[in-house]
Design a protein around this nucleic acid. Structure first.
Lengths: 244, 244
DNA sequence: CAGTGGTCTAGACCACTCA
DNA sequence: GAGTGGTCTAGACCACTGA
């Protein structure tokens, strides 16, 4: 593999390993390097640009980490397939999710009240029955078709039903109050539709539903929300991108 | 922060950075180090165990990458909130998955044959009806209880049923042939159990099942496998960790 | 065999934090 | 100003691959 023509500016405040990483990333993004192509060896990079091997290695390691390239001992370093976007699973609102799928999201608020935490929430979020959560039940529609039912329980934040109706986005309301969701756990299972849920989603009782339950926390590890959702499985599937 | 009491064996073939990483991981997993605790500085590690700073750094970098710790320039290195397990979603075999859940996995091979690709696979993996795939249907058990049914379609690899029975692991057979799964897409939905599947899983027909369909590719973007799986939802849920 | 990535050394200077 | 992580050097030996 002949050496690539890269632009490394040693007077720049940008770290050398980072410049190298960005340059290679660009070549891959623009298609000048294709999946399966062999990269110059670490040694070649090191000599061609007078960069210490360990510095070259740092750039390569981050590219491997980001999924752009992979290394094979004794063989070389290769550009990886770009089949998948480089995104992992993210905390995403229903609205964001639908917009990503090119559907128009909407909502009907069915319940808006203060309640003590459900048992499951008390256990996982370490709350007691004297704590008060804001409970919001919403029918979720995509292109005006009902696809799911969301029961959201919020901790440590209050607002009016009117504010939700005008803002449309729970996450935006949280952000306006300086609350940022940082991590979450979502569990997915299949359940048979109860009568009330079935009626709302236009299904027969007993129809298979996708049920997701999610806990979310902010950066400090404070419990923020619990959501239990039921989806019409013909209209809503869950897709995950995986890496080894 | 006083120095920790770690066990580093320099005569071991296990790399030093990896030993260091594992030891710290253990301290965090067992709770001997708690979220927010300050780790000894890189310099302290380096001196205490006579390890080169760059080697200490490699261990730390991987721990950061895996979400165990985070670094703050000028302040120190801290144990991260351990609310979430340290795994993101990975391509994982059923066996690995069960072992992570402390269950003993086993399998019964029901079908082992060559077939043309199913329609869905032809579309997604760009194959034609003249291609031949190896199809394997297996009943999957955890602690001897049937939890799921896997239909796997493999491309570009052949082996005998005997080899699978002795090796036990499809992924190991692939690895032995130099095939490494690199990325995948998994779709999760809820379906009603068909009669044959219900019987195998000990359920009534029409019971809600978790259905996952997965495509996997190697580093070069070559299609390797398609798996359609059905799970007894009471016994098997899918959990995802999310980040914003 | 030469070439590759994997690991490791023993230093260096820098920007940043905090007392 | 002492201590921290961030970057970087210029080498070394190893295990592995492939011709």
């Amino acid at each position: 593999m002949s050496i690539l023509n890269l632009n490394i500016d040693r007077s720049s405040p940008v770290p050398i390993y980072y410049q190298l990483k960005q340059e290679i990333e660009n070549l891959i993004e623009t298609g000048e390097l294709s999946p399966g192509d062999t990269l110059p060896s670490e040694n070649e990079f090191s000599k061609a640009y007078s960069i210490s091997p360990m510095t070259v290695r740092q750039a390569m390691s981050e590219l491997v980490n980001d999924g752009y390239i992979h290394r094979e001992r004794g063989r070389g370093t290769f550009v990886s397939s770009r089949r998948l976007a480089h995104t992992l699973d993210r905390l995403m609102s229903f609205s964001e999710d639908m917009q990503n799928r090119d559907l128009t999201p909407s909502s009907q608020i069915l319940i808006f009240e203060e309640t003590p935490p459900p048992m499951k929430v008390m256990r996982h979020a370490n709350l007691s029955s004297s704590d008060r959560l804001l409970r919001i039940r919403r029918l979720r529609l995509a292109d005006d078709q009902p696809v799911g039912l969301h029961d959201t329980y919020l901790h440590g934040v209050t607002f009016s039903q009117e504010e939700l109706e005008t803002t449309q986005s729970l996450y935006r309301i949280l952000e306006n109050r300086g609350i940022q969701l940082a991590e979450g756990v979502k569990t997915i299972e299949a359940v048979a539709a109860e009568e009330d849920v079935a009626a709302l989603l236009g299904l027969q009782p007993g129809s298979p539903l996708l049920q997701t339950t999610q806990f979310s926390w902010d950066h400090m590890g404070n419990f923020v929300e619990f959501v239990i959702a039921h989806y019409h499985s013909d209209l809503y599937q869950y897709t995950i991108q995986l890496r080894r």
